[in-house]
Each structure stands twice: as C-alpha cells, then as structure tokens.
Design a protein around this nucleic acid. Structure first.
Lengths: 156, 156
DNA sequence: GCAGTCGTTCAGTCAAGACTGAACGAACTG
DNA sequence: CAGTTCGTTCAGTCTTGACTGAACGACTGC
C-alpha cells in the first residue's frame, strides 16, 4: 500500500467533496491538485499525476474552466494548454453559484405566473419560494464582491 | 397526452432542479407538491399524486425531513404520518447548507494541518481555501437568522 | 509531403444510486 | 387471537453519467 502524502490526501478529499456535491470526482481532484501545487499544469501532467485518462482531464478541466474556477494560460513557444487557478477562484465560483440561484428563482417565478385564478394561495407560495432563490442569488453576488478584498488581507 | 396543469408543471420543474443539484428527483417533486398544495400529505397520497411507489415516498420524505425542509405532523385519531412544509423551510435548508460548508471548511483546514514543513506555500493555499468555506458557512448562518423576518413582511 | 504532438470527441464500459415490488414489523381493531 | 393498515426495509432492476481507449482533426517542424 502506497504511503499517502498530505498533498495526496487533500486531493482525494477534494474529490470526495466534489462528488457529494453532485460534480464529477475528477473535477474536484483537479482543483485540489492546482491548489496544492500552485502552478500551471498540462492535461498530460494532470492525467499522470492523478492516474486518470487524458480524456477525463480534458473534459473536467474544460468544465472547471467554464465555471470560472480555473483558467487556461499559454507559454510562448509551447503548444501545451496550461491550466491554473484563476484569479479570485473562490469569488468566481460564488458568482457561478449566484447566477444559478438567480436563474432558478426566475424560472420558478415564471412558473408561478402561469397559475390560474383559482389558485391564488398556491401561486403566492410558489412565488415566495422563487423570491427566496432570487434573494439568495443577489446576496451571494454581493458577497462575492467583498471576498477578493478579504483574501488579500489574510496572511496565513 | 395528459394536459399539464401549472401545478404539475411546477412540480416537475422542481424535480429537475433537485436532480441537477445532485439530489433525487423525487425529493424535489415532493417538495414542490407540498409547496403547491400547502397542506399535509400522507405517503400514500404523495405516491398516488406523483405516480411513484410508496417506498420512494417514504425514503425521500424522510430524507427531506432529515434536512429540516419538511416535517412530520400527526392528527389525533389517525395513524397516518403527515408531512408538510416545516416552519421556515427556507431558513432551515440554509442552515443545513451552512453546516455542510462549515464542515467542509474545517475538514480542509484539518487536512492542511498535516502538511510537512517543506510545503509552507501549499499549506497556506489549502488553508485559505478552507477558510473560504468556513467564512461562507458563517455568513450563510448569519443570514439565515434574518430570513424569517423578511418572509413575514412579504405580502405577495 | 510525412511524422510527431497536441486537445477533443465519440462509442462503449462500468459503477453508483434512484426507484420499485414484495416482504416485514409494529400498532391498532374487531 | 386473526385481520387490517400503516411505515419501513431489502433484494433486484434499471437508468444515469463518469470514465476510458481509440480514433480524429488541427497544428508544427522536418
């Protein structure tokens, strides 16, 4: 049995967290890797280090990129795609969540709008539910604009 | 093809939202049903209305109950278990999320503690990540204590 | 042109878990 | 006690989607 370093341990834990959240485990592990190492990685490096196929590395990295958590960087004279932690990755991920919440909120309110006359009470409850999501999204978005400041002030 | 009422439409939509969030679809549909109808339901009623087995109704209702979103009520002289929306269901669900975030945060920080000397930078980044989750949990918790007030002041 | 090196895509496999039917135990009723 | 009526549990099925290997297209340098 291979001795698990603290880094590997953290990376695997990130995978499990990601999995419980309904996201692919590999995505969490990639994020963990980039956090631990703190430098850009190519798909091949990620695949080798995490013992996954290059296909999985490509797919999951792109998905993480789509949610703004990691970003693609290029080095001159090097054809590789390098992925690294984006700037303010946490703020960005909060924005992504915020957008999703707001989207659900308006979706629900839209659904509420089509309720017939006779169900005013039901309509009211559905509307309230939708507004809860909207408010949550707005609040999260407001937070995300403070987070980057705090991150700078943390010394350890 | 059956004509889909606004209520059914909303319920199904809730199921999809729940599914995307990684939770069972039936759980979302049950929640939607309870929001729309605004009255207690027995497992049999839910099973019939949502066209699911009683086993699914039982399992998912209990799961929703565990996260504090719905609650169990009893009527005198009636052996049935009735489920209805809990008091402040949204606040309660936020508390559940908040606890989970805090739990992840301390888990990550704990993992960071086991980093060896030579990886001070990595340890710092992991710690920062953990603190982000902790802070997010704390904020959500603080906010959940205001939400119930706002809910009362909403007129429509 | 060809060979090599990227990232992506796609068909296929496989495992996780959602869902069900049937059996079960508990609590009533007569 | 037998007969119902609940809720729960468990074995089994089946769907979803994560993951992979192999093929592919784009690009580079020779």
């Amino acid at each position: 049995m291979e001795q698990a370093s603290a880094a590997e341990n953290f990376i695997e834990r990130m995978g499990l967290i990601s999995q419980v959240d309904g996201a692919p485990r590999i995505a969490g592990r990639i994020l963990g890797l980039l956090i631990v190492e703190g430098r850009p990685f190519t798909l091949d490096e990620m695949a080798e280090r995490l013992k996954i196929s290059k296909a999985s590395a490509s797919t999951n990295a792109r998905q993480l990129r789509a949610s703004g958590i990691i970003r693609l960087v290029a080095h001159a004279g090097d054809r590789h795609d390098y992925y690294e932690l984006g700037s303010d990755p946490y703020r960005r991920s909060m924005e992504t969540i915020s957008e999703r919440l707001a989207s659900i909120g308006s979706e629900v309110i839209e659904a509420a709008a089509s309720f017939p006359e006779g169900q005013a009470e039901a309509k009211r409850r559905v509307c309230q539910f939708g507004r809860f999501y909207l408010r949550m999204g707005e609040r999260l978005k407001a937070w995300s604009e403070q987070v980057e400041d705090e991150a700078d002030t943390t010394t350890n």
